[in-house]
């Protein structure tokens, strides 16, 4: 083994590397948080229509989930980036291309729609875990189906699903690394550029790895605490 490598950790604090790291970190966090928020909204909607009595709505929900889950995210990114603008009417395409930060917006679109399908699956299994009596009770107290979901089922299911929703944030946080392929300057792309400029791959990739690992650890700890706070008495045994 001929391991020849000169470590140079302080270089990470010099410009332009320091700037790239800060920019990359901000973009990663910003992109993941926004995509997570949108994915939760769409995911809750799709997950809920998959539980309704209408076969039509259920079918739409199933098609959505199967479609987005069975195409690799990187391919979806390319489709949104290269194909989607071509499908728009000409005027729209021009105004889309004129928008600032097209790669960021494309990444946001692709990540949210992809993750929404995963969230929808979690929502469905969360709702399936609710005892049937809750549905009966809501219906018999005169709530409409929408009201039943809005006031009884979703608040209940939401608390059951906190761990999976948190893990979806971590999934999105990691998946956001793929957006470097369409030119979003997030943390992995910052690491890649530093490696390309300085040939100090170990230092460069460590920055990105440490970012992902500390974020994961923080979210896991925070969610453990939140889960404990919000647990439904009697549903999950006390530790």
């Amino acid at each position: 083994m001929t391991l020849k490598y000169d470590f140079d950790w302080p270089m990470l604090l010099e410009d332009p590397y320091r700037e790239w790291i800060i920019e990359g970190f901000i973009n990663t966090v910003y992109l993941s948080l926004m995509a997570w928020g949108i994915a939760l909204m769409i995911g809750i909607f799709i997950g809920t229509i998959r539980m309704t009595r209408s076969p039509m709505l259920r079918f739409i929900g199933t098609v959505y989930v199967e479609f987005f889950r069975n195409i690799p995210l990187l391919v979806q990114l390319f489709v949104w980036f290269f194909v989607f603008p071509l499908m728009l009417p000409h005027d729209w395409m021009m105004s889309w291309n004129r928008l600032p930060h097209v790669p960021f917006l494309t990444a946001l679109l692709a990540l949210s729609l992809f993750t929404a399908a995963r969230v929808a699956e979690h929502i469905r299994s969360g709702i399936s875990s609710i005892p049937k009596g809750q549905f009966d009770a809501a219906t018999s107290s005169g709530l409409t189906q929408v009201q039943m979901y809005r006031y009884v089922i979703i608040p209940y299911a939401f608390r059951v699903m906190i761990p999976t929703i948190a893990s979806e944030f971590l999934t999105i946080f990691k998946n956001s690394a793929l957006t470097l392929t369409i030119g979003v300057s997030e943390i992995t792309s910052a690491a890649k550029s530093i490696e390309a400029w300085s040939f100090h791959g170990i230092e460069a990739y460590s920055v990105a790895s440490v970012t992902y690992m500390t974020t994961t650890a923080t979210v896991v700890l925070f969610m453990g605490w939140l889960e404990h706070r919000l647990r439904i008495p009697g549903l999950i045994a006390k530790k």
Partner: peptide, 13 residues
């Protein structure tokens, strides 16, 4: 807790 793309970069290096 790391993205696959980063692991690929790591090993490629």
């Amino acid at each position: 807790s790391n993205p696959l793309i980063l692991i690929v970069f790591w090993f490629f290096f």
